[in-house]
Amino acid sequence: MLPIVDFHAEDAAETFVKSLHETGFGVLKNHPIQKELLQSLYDNWAGFFNSDEKIKFQFNVETQDGFFPTSVSETAKGFKVKDIKEYFHFYPWGQAPEGLKQQAQDYFSQANDVAETLLNWVQEHSPADVAAKYSAPLSSMIEKSEQTLLRVLHYPPITGDEEVGAIRAAAHGDINLLTILPAANAGGLQVQLKDGSWFDVPGDFGCIIVNIGDMLQEASGGYFPSTIHRVINPEGEDRSRSRISLPLFLHPRPDVVLSERYTAREYLQERLRELGVK
């Protein structure tokens, strides 16, 4: 269903952008992000979330950096039950545990470089009438942006005491331009197909999953769809395992014009209010 595209293949850009247009998602292998770095991040952040240290990094309401406990987790748009997750918002300028900061910065830089390449691919293979809608080249929209966010997600084990109807991440679309997501240390990510059914996204370690966010959908006049996705609760023995995920949400500078309706700042503030985190 979703082709796995070799990052270095001659037709990688064309095949990848076609997948984004048709499904809202793309999957890449042989990408430049180091596997050893990813595995170390999974291990080290699992330790952080299982320690009391996390309480020292309570999130800042205005700047949105730091630790968000389960009690203030997001409620997906259209849902009334909070997701079963806690997470840390890492920005290069923001707070972070001293022992994890450099490693998080290394991943942030590597993933951001990949994302810039992918935005160039999208620009190159957008139909002329779609490209004409972009207020600036897509990769230039993220230059010197301080809004791009690394979210380190921790989905705790399922205990059976969760609120009725709660899942790890209810169906939602992302706010940003593109999301870069290395395959997590456990499965559960699903994407909604056009017929309303759900499809398991390939999660082989070593792949990165890329999806369209609402801002790119807005900027492209809907040509690139912001596809709905979710993280379902595990079954059987997997219920006792936690899940770590490292999405990088690629955000333009606040002044970037997305469309006649929105700047990036206006769009982001509207969505944060809808999510109940601001």
Rank of each mutant, 00 (worst) to 15 (best):
Q39N: 12
L2H: 15
G203M: 06
H89A: 04
D106S: 06
F59M: 09
L38H: 15
P32G: 04
E86P: 00
R241A: 15
F199H: 05
F224A: 13
N185D: 15
L37N: 13
L275N: 01
R261A: 02
G213K: 01
S242N: 13
L258S: 00
L275V: 01
A132I: 10
P156K: 10
S40W: 06
A131I: 08
S71W: 04
A183T: 05
Q147H: 10
D238N: 14
A12F: 05
E146R: 07
L189I: 13
P252R: 03
I228W: 06
S71C: 09
Y223K: 02
D238G: 10
Q147K: 09
K35Y: 12
A219Y: 03
S140R: 02
C207R: 04
K194G: 03
P92L: 04
L150D: 11
A170D: 09
P156C: 06
A171L: 06
A131Q: 13
W198I: 13
A115E: 03
I175D: 11
P92C: 08
I228Y: 12
F224Y: 15
H125K: 12
E98D: 12
D129P: 03
A104E: 11
L246T: 13
Y42E: 14
P92R: 08
L250E: 11
T179S: 14
R230E: 04
W93C: 10
V257Y: 00
K29S: 06
S71P: 07
W198E: 08
Y87T: 02
W198S: 05
L20K: 03
P127I: 13
I208L: 12
V81D: 00
K133S: 09
A169R: 01
A9F: 00
V277T: 05
F59T: 07
F79E: 06
E237V: 07
D255A: 00
T75M: 03
F90E: 02
V201N: 05
Y155P: 10
K77E: 15
R271A: 05
I244G: 11
Y155E: 14
D52E: 14
M215Q: 14
H31D: 04
V27H: 05
E53A: 11
I228Q: 14
R261M: 01
K144R: 10
Y155I: 09
D113S: 07
Q64I: 00
L153G: 13
R239P: 13
N233A: 11
N176V: 03
I180G: 02
A170M: 07
G187T: 08
L177I: 11
S197N: 06
V130H: 05
W121Q: 12
D195C: 00
N211V: 03
E36L: 04
I55N: 15
G276E: 00
V277S: 02
I228H: 12
Y155T: 09
L100Q: 10
E274G: 01
N60W: 06
G222I: 07
G196F: 03
